[in-house]
Amino acid sequence: MSAPNVNAQESYYVPAQSSWPILASFAMFLLAFGAGTTINGLSGKADGTFGVVLLMLGALLMVGILVGWFSHVIHESRAGLYSPQMDRSFRWGMSWFIFSEVMFFAAFFGALFYVRNLAVPWLGGEGDKGVSQMLWPGFTAEWPLMNPPDAAQFAGPRAIVDPWHIPLLNTVLLVTSSFTVTLAHHALLKDKRAMVALWLTATIALGAIFIGFQAYEYVHAYNDLGLTLNAGIYGATFFILTGFHGLHVTLGTLMLIIILLRILKGHFDSRHHFGFEAVAWYWHFVDVVWIGLFLFVYVF
């Protein structure tokens, strides 16, 4: 029998019917179908104008849903509907989501290690298979790969990004931002709200500067170094890894901005701040991925 005064352990909040999920599914469909049509249009496989409209509609709808759905959840949280058990569900959820993101990057790191250590040396004649190197007999294996086998199709980069300038600076920025977000967390645990806002602002600024530097580096790579998506496997791995990382930093920065706004509105206290922690975990995750990028994409 459910007694009227059930304790927290016994009253898990099961939300009422909600229209957010199906709307979000429809928005995802518009985004996916629109993106497909747009991209097919860009590479001349089909007419893409119709796609751009769908893509924009999907993006608008998705932004609206994210704002609405998260507002709803924040409202529920502020109304005290979430028990400690609910809090643990959110924690498990965020942890496993970050694990899925780790595996997403693992696929690209795996591709990088495979081409560096196996595929390119084999094309250059290493190993006992004796076939690959016959395709392009003059090809010499090297990493970074400056001269792809078929130079007519893929002109290699003239130079690569020097790790000891912008990338090193970016490393310092992101590592520092991991410290500042932790300082913000410690301040929140002591309920020093002004300090929380200060350290969060610092974290956001560091993230924004990082993104700015990355954008500058991309322009530099395209205009001055000949390092492009089309520059053979080095360019491909460089841009997919740094590009997806940059997107994650951008998303993380947006999330931090939301958290800062919530702090300014008086949300969170020293005991209830899972939203803050989830974003902090995410931020540490993009930081760790960057360390991997700095070492294996830029330095070695």
Binding site: A119, V120, W122, P149, D150, F154, G232, I233
Partner: peptide
């Protein structure tokens, strides 16, 4: 996935 560019 294109060996002409050094992929596989």
């Amino acid at each position: 996935f294109n060996a002409a560019g050094g992929g596989d």
